[in-house]
Design a protein around this nucleic acid. Sequence first.
DNA 1: TGTGTTTGTTCGTACGCTTTACTAACAAAC
DNA 2: GTTTGTTAGTAAAGCGTACGAACAAACACA
Lengths: 361, 361
Amino acid sequence: MLPEHARGHNRSLVLQTLFHQGAMSRADLSRETGLTRVTISDLVGELIADGFVAEMGMREASGPGKPAMLVDLDRDGHRIVGLDLSGADEFIGAILTLDGDIVGRKSVAVATGEGAVVEAVVSLARDLVADAHAPVLGIGVGTPGVVDEHGVILTAPNLGWAGFDLETALREALDLPVLVANDANAAVLAEYTFGGAGDDVLLVKVGRGVGSGLLASGQPMRGAHFAAGEVGHVTVGTDGGPVCVCGKVGCLEAWLAVPALTARLAAASADDREGILRDAGERLGIALAPIVGVLDVSEIVLSGPQELLDGPLAEATVETLRARTLAQFHDGVRVRMTEQGQDIVLRGAAVMVLSGQLGVS
Amino acid sequence: MLPEHARGHNRSLVLQTLFHQGAMSRADLSRETGLTRVTISDLVGELIADGFVAEMGMREASGPGKPAMLVDLDRDGHRIVGLDLSGADEFIGAILTLDGDIVGRKSVAVATGEGAVVEAVVSLARDLVADAHAPVLGIGVGTPGVVDEHGVILTAPNLGWAGFDLETALREALDLPVLVANDANAAVLAEYTFGGAGDDVLLVKVGRGVGSGLLASGQPMRGAHFAAGEVGHVTVGTDGGPVCVCGKVGCLEAWLAVPALTARLAAASADDREGILRDAGERLGIALAPIVGVLDVSEIVLSGPQELLDGPLAEATVETLRARTLAQFHDGVRVRMTEQGQDIVLRGAAVMVLSGQLGVS
DNA sequence: TGTGTTTGTTCGTACGCTTTACTAACAAAC
DNA sequence: GTTTGTTAGTAAAGCGTACGAACAAACACA
């Protein structure tokens, strides 16, 4: 640990404070961070020189004393490019502000195979960077599959990838910072930074498959083999269930994934629909109960088609969880839909860039 | 982040290196840590002045150059006191070396109620400190119940405690650093530091109840309400099961805790015993499968009566886990007994002190 | 006009680590 | 016995980082 590491930490502390609390004076920053005004002035000067922070004009004086010069992140001066490769039909890309607002979109049809996918993704990213009309802080990518800490996609059956270094490929093609992570892990970051989630939260993402992203004490969990969150093919219950594409019986994905669930709903009468949704929700609760017990998460967030998840399914999940865990410890566990909608992975990808480049989350 | 924090980090880095690799020269430390020889000399001088490190004599010269003066943690000059309050009949205490070796023991009968327990524990700790015949680095305590980050026992039904600040009570009575944590959380630290466990490990402790301790990326998980690991009263399976003391049906504890399991074994014929153990192991596997899926732990360690756990039960657990998770991601999950035996909580309590006082683990 | 408050900067100081340069102590080769 | 080369550890100087003291600027209020 060298002094410059401490300096970097303090730089991030200033950026983090501005990110969450908005424009304020140097003296405000001093009070918020506990560093002295002198040190803050020095740090802010450095951050202004680097272009991350800008002076925003004087605060209209409200009391005695010299009026304050407000400083803030240069929010208008930067953009982030986010990509979501988890869609069934399209690769979706967006230009985002530092606040996670989407100010531009573009998408291309899904490709398969290493070469074709990379070509499509690079082209999508290049177009978005060109349209940003501002310096791009970096490119964040949320992709299905197991992704290691350096953005190497270890396995991604849907995209036909195994051991492919997407991060380096994109960085070399675009000459910008690139961060690649699993889509559900990106999503939980969006929920944490923009969705007001607490420090211990599990996000369950239901789509073609079922994945999850986990934050413990505000830190993303990666797992021993970078496979944390890969919960789709865990068997749930001890009484059989639907057959899964993986060959097993009763996988969470066979109960809950959108294709399986919509197929069962389509085959059922209108009266049976609620029962089917409640069954799926109960299965999710059964799978989550031991996780809530071991991890003591306070919040479970669902992401996916609202018409499927937000209703009988979510209700059955929370009821099952309450019934299967000890109220004394985990009474407060909340289950809710995300409010980030379909853009959750894009916004999570932006958080990855904010976190990687500014140390902000 | 101030410069002195960096200094503290580097002090711990030196101690950590010596702790794990044993005596070495200052130049060796420089190579291991990446800090310069000058800085290491300065740090070592400070640590010697503080009594944590001692010079151990010259290394017999093996090559050219000036012979090296070996330095090491002053292992003989310090002791740690560990307490294990999780026993059914006794509070167990021990004097330990910095290497976790037990060099003295003492125990007292279990008391109940705040006042009586504190009196018994303080007296036990005081006797051990007096017998240590060396400066005691601190006192670590592993206790059943939910314990917060400051050593306040939020709930401990077995001891009749709720919201009791054991850490402060002991610190004021004994005037030594005190660290209190849940017994299973202490146990997993022992397994990590002394048992060669990896960075992502779950320890399941089977005794009167069933608890667990979890390390993710080498960091202990606490949970949103400090209740991480409280897995005993999670319902497992969807086909009923034994009635639990908590009133629910099919709790993991009703399947697996020692009193319930021995009672079922005693009531069964010799031929049925293996089936009962396998059933219990299967239930454990069912409960652990979603946890392995979400957390991607590489290692599950069992702690408790060897004659119950180490055999058909553990075998059934690992078979169930393999059957219920996707081999592609979690093939390598190992299930094994701890080799720390009955002293695992005591040794874990020592790790808490090492970690808290020296930054070593 | 003076007094008190707040902001932000300048100056000098303390601390931590590095680089550079040195001494001490040894082995190997001659 | 001398020279050469290597390794261990220390001393001095310099740079980066944060702090406290002091101050000027700008304002409210009496």
